[in-house]
Amino acid sequence: MVMALEITGFLLGTASWLVTGTALANDYWKVSSFFGSVIISNRQYENLWHSCAEDSSGIAECRDFESLLALPRFMLACRALMIISLLLGLFSMVISILGLKCIKIGSVREDTKSKIAVTGGILFILASLCSMTAISWYAARVVQDFNNPLYGGIKFELGAGLYMGWAGTGLSIIGGSLLCCSCNQWSKGQSKGAYYPPSQAQKIHKPVSELETARAYV
């Protein structure tokens, strides 16, 4: 049971890291809306790195954001949070591998491996919080500009990249939680066995030793 939880949590965490990386590279974080627009032959879309325009023939031209200082502060924060999330996810996978009970590395004790697996699970959850903050913040700004009647620029809607990011966040939370729960399951399994402290063990065996001594004198 414990091994199944660990393997499932590790696989979900690995899948979340891949999905989050794919979401970061996806071009469609926000897509221009046709709501209230007369021209529907052109479409624009953006992500954290560049802005693209696509005509009716399907030909797209992209332009990278050239100046970091010219970008809004929230976009810089979203970039940093997404990169931190991927780095934490990478560390989580490495640590989780070391903590899996199905992998034997040296003479590491079982309780130590459980603690290592829990550490990997906590890092998965921290990575998910970073990516969730970035994606939700970006989505909130898109919705705010869309609903602002005084906004004079192009109005955008939520793109597929944001939904992929939310999916990766959910997988990371579930995977990290399973890795943390595996330690509790292992502790419960250990508590089922009988354990006697050294003092109690001596008291239990003491009458037997006295009886054997009396028989020896007889």
Rank of each mutant, 00 (worst) to 15 (best):
F146L: 12
A139H: 12
F124K: 06
A134C: 07
S136L: 00
I135S: 10
G153A: 09
N147I: 08
F146P: 12
Y151C: 13
R141I: 14
I135K: 01
S131D: 01
G121C: 12
W137Y: 13
Y138R: 00
N148Y: 11
I125G: 02
R141F: 10
Y151G: 13
A127R: 02
S136D: 05
Y151L: 12
Q144G: 04
P149G: 05
A134W: 02
W137E: 15
Y151Q: 14
L123D: 01
F124C: 11
V143K: 09
I125K: 03
G121Q: 05
A139G: 14
G153N: 04
I122Y: 01
P149V: 11
R141G: 08
S128I: 01
A140T: 10
T133H: 03
C130Q: 04
L150S: 15
L123Y: 04
I125P: 04
T133I: 13
D145E: 14
S128P: 11
Q144Y: 09
I135Y: 05
N147P: 11
C130F: 10
I122T: 10
S128Y: 05
A139C: 14
S128M: 12
S128H: 03
M132Y: 06
D145M: 11
D145G: 01
I125F: 00
L129A: 11
M132P: 03
V142F: 00
P149Q: 07
T133W: 02
Y138K: 03
F146E: 06
V142L: 00
V142C: 08
S136G: 00
F146G: 07
Y138N: 00
N148I: 09
Q144T: 12
L126M: 12
I135A: 13
N147A: 12
Q144D: 15
V142W: 07
